[in-house]
C-alpha cells in the first residue's frame, strides 16, 4: 500500500529526514516512536503534503501512485488521512459544513454523486457515537474553544467519517487522560480492517497497550534506526531512548 524509499526532506535548508525506508501493507499497524525532534511530525507532514518541507530525495508510492506528485487534497482523496499533533482552530467554519464539503469533494474525485443530506446526518450521528463525541461539538466552529482532548477526538471522528486507506496519527495520545486515550484507541480499533493501515506516531508505549501494533520502528535523527514488534516498545518503555542513541553513535 505504502512504500517509502530513502525519503529525504529539509526545511529552511536544514536536513530533517535522512533516508527513511518503510513498507506498509493493508491490514497492518505500524508504530513510530522516537525522542522529541527526531522527525516524526516531519515525516507525517511530508506524507500529507505540507508545503513548508522540501523533499530532496527518495520516493513514496501509495497504491501505485507517486504520492509526492499529488496535492494535499488529492492525497486525502486517494485515502491518506493525517490526525494532526496540533489541530488548528478555525472560527467561522462549521464542523458540519466542513465535513460535508470534504466528503463530497472526495466522492466527486471518485466519480460519485454528493451524499444525500439525510444519509450524511445519519453517518455523522453514527460516527459521533463511535468516539463518544458530544453532539454540541459539531454544531460549533471547527475546533474553536475545544479542549486538547476534544480536538484529538475530533481528529478521530473526522477519520471515521472520511474512512481513509491509510491513517497517520501524530501523537494523538499526547495530552490525553486515560479515559480519552481509551476512547481514541477504541475508535481506531473499530476502524481497523483488512483493507486499511495505520501509522501510529507516539512518544510513549502507553498508547500501544490499546492499539496493538504489528511493527514498531524507532526514528532518530531522521532515520529509522531500529525495527521490531511490540516487544520493542516495551523495551523502550523500560530503557528509554538513551541506549538507542548510544547504539547509533557507536555504529557511526
Amino acid at each position: 500500500m505504502l512504500s517509502i524509499k530513502n525519503l529525504q526532506a529539509e526545511i529552511e535548508g536544514k536536513k530533517i529526514l535522512n533516508g527513511i525506508n518503510l513498507e506498509v501493507k493493508p491490514g497492518e499497524v505500524h508504530a513510530i516512536m522516537g525522542p522529541n525532534g527526531a522527525g516524526k511530525s516531519t515525516l507525517s507532514s511530508v506524507l500529507a503534503g505540507r508545503e513548508d518541507y522540501t523533499v530532496t530525495g527518495g520516493e513514496v508510492i501509495f497504491n501505485g501512485k507517486n504520492l509526492l506528485d499529488l496535492s494535499p487534497e488529492d492525497r486525502a482523496r486517494e485515502g491518506v488521512f493525517l490526525a494532526f499533533q496540533y489541530p488548528v482552530e478555525i472560527p467561522g467554519v462549521s464542523t458540519t459544513n466542513f465535513l460535508k464539503t470534504a466528503i463530497n469533494e472526495k466522492r466527486k474525485y471518485h466519480g460519485l454523486e454528493p451524499m444525500e443530506a439525510t444519509d450524511f446526518l445519519k453517518m455523522m450521528r453514527a460516527k459521533m457515537e463511535f468516539v463518544e463525541m458530544d453532539k454540541s461539538l459539531t454544531s460549533r466552529s471547527l475546533n474553536e474553544g475545544f479542549s486538547g482532548g476534544e480536538k484529538k477526538r475530533n481528529e478521530i471522528f473526522q477519520m471515521a467519517m472520511l474512512e481513509p486507506k491509510l491513517g497517520i496519527l501524530d501523537e494523538t495520545d499526547s495530552g490525553l487522560d486515560i479515559d480519552a486515550l481509551r476512547l481514541v484507541s477504541n475508535g481506531v480499533n473499530k476502524l481497523r480492517n483488512k483493507e486499511n493501515a495505520f501509522i501510529v506516531i507516539t512518544h510513549y508505549q502507553r498508547l500501544l497497550d490499546y492499539i496493538v501494533p504489528d511493527f514498531v520502528h524507532v526514528l532518530y535523527k531522521g532515520r529509522i534506526v531500529k525495527s521490531g514488534d511490540k516487544e520493542l516498545a516495551k523495551e523502550l518503555e523500560v530503557k528509554g531512548y538513551d541506549w538507542i542513541k548510544q547504539e547509533v553513535e557507536a555504529a557511526q
Binding site: 500529507a48 503534503g49 505540507r50 508545503e51 496535492s71 494535499p72 487534497e73 492525497r75 486525502a76 482523496r77 488521512f81 493525517l82 494532526f84 489541530p87 488548528v88 478555525i90 467554519v93 466542513f98 465535513l99 464539503t101 470534504a102 466528503i103 469533494e105 472526495k106 474525485y109 473526522q158 472520511l162
Partner: peptide, 10 residues
C-alpha cells in the same frame, strides 16, 4: 493546509 489535508481543494 488543514482543510486541504481533508480533501478540500485549495
Amino acid at each position: 493546509f488543514y482543510l486541504r489535508s481533508r480533501g478540500i481543494p485549495e
